[in-house]
Design a protein around this nucleic acid. Structure first.
Lengths: 205, 205
DNA sequence: ACAGTTCTGAACTGATCAGTACAGAATACT
DNA sequence: AGTATTCTGTACTGATCAGTTCAGAACTGT
């Protein structure tokens, strides 16, 4: 009795994620999802219920497999200026790949759904706060090592959080320019660690 | 002879702009545009040809009436750190209005069309470059007054350009938090003018 | 009143979309 | 072979969309 399932849910979600990442929620029709996942429309609805549920699963997978590892070093307890700068350098390297034109699935979805979808708007605000918290953690680490004044932490972590969102948007129009922006931010962060030298230099000008 | 036109094209474009600003290009149906502009579907197509042409006119009006005055002080020849900081404080003030949830029409359109529409993608990249150029201009002014080192200009103008895009996105999910981010960026800019003092302070910590 | 325009309402086209329904093929275990 | 279950192909519903068409109403100056 009982035929076994011929596909793996995880693989289906991954395939759907790739499509949503490139074309957005509204931009991905069920027909496109059929060809992307290899599943028939019937099976997709049987397995996930609605298009939106499949999207939510794809978004969760995106956060787990893409954002988490990218942000982990910044969020780590021993994080500092180097980790924050390295984050932006990693983005710059990512932006060299042609696939980077699709940007960040979460940021794209914020632009598409924020305000329209009350449920998602909360998730989105939480996501932005995660960036704020991650950079605040890194800057606290830097302050502990004397690379930063404590009162610089809040404003600079805000700055880095919104900068991250900005470069994820900029990459959609011009990846090369966006990579350049990332390196600029990384350089700025690094310069924070040499603030004393900079101050002396600035005085002599 | 000849009945005169009973409406003003400019007013129609403004009404359309308001709708597009809130709901986006795809999110604004012709029926919605009819009620928003007060014109019939027939008249709209007679006057503008396509929905997209009306949208382009609305976007042009947005740049003229909203972005230009907002950016003018930063782009002015006598611009400096104060103008850059004031720009972000003005954004923070704007974000206190409930209407600010709609964000920036241009940024929203980048998120909606960039990559999908080759014509628009160029316009979008140009728009981002305008921010880069505006802040570079302000920082050059600051450098001329000895508030900044010349080599800090490129990286910090990039930083401010992407930050602007970031806060325009953040305001769509949480205007209060976004306003806070704007003030943080403004404070950071102001602190650049007191860099020598900061350096001394940092050393003593 | 009349002629020249502008504007409107309403119906229509052709396309696309998410989601549903269901018959039947494919597979597994007994 | 028989049976339970999973999966698929196809066709459908009902809704929405941009854009077209056109008859005729509304208005203007002569």
């Amino acid at each position: 009795m009982a035929r076994t399932r011929a596909y793996e849910q995880g693989a289906v979600v991954v395939a759907a994620k790739e499509l949503f990442w490139q074309h957005g929620l509204d931009g991905s029709a069920i027909g496109d999802l059929e060809t992307a996942t290899g599943l028939s429309r019937s099976s997709l609805y049987l397995a996930f219920g609605t298009k939106r549920a499949l999207f939510d699963a794809a978004l969760a997978d995106y956060l787990d497999t893409f954002i988490d590892p990218l942000l982990a070093p910044v969020e780590a307890p021993q994080s500092g200026l180097a980790e924050a700068a390295r984050f932006f350098r990693r983005l710059a390297a990512l932006f060299a790949e042609p696939r980077s034109r699709r940007g960040c699935l979460m940021i794209n979805t914020i632009a598409e759904l924020a305000g329209r979808d009350p449920t998602f708007t909360g998730v989105a605000a939480q996501f932005v706060n995660r960036y704020r918290a991650a950079f605040a953690n890194a800057l606290r680490g830097a302050a502990a090592q004397g690379e930063l004044t404590r009162r610089e932490i809040p404003r600079r972590s805000e700055l880095l959080a919104v900068s991250t969102m900005g470069v994820w948007l900029a990459v959609r129009t011009d990846p090369t320019a966006a990579a350049h922006s990332c390196r600029a931010v990384a350089n700025e962060i690094t310069s924070w660690g040499r603030a004393g030298d900079d101050g002396a230099l600035r005085r002599s000008v």
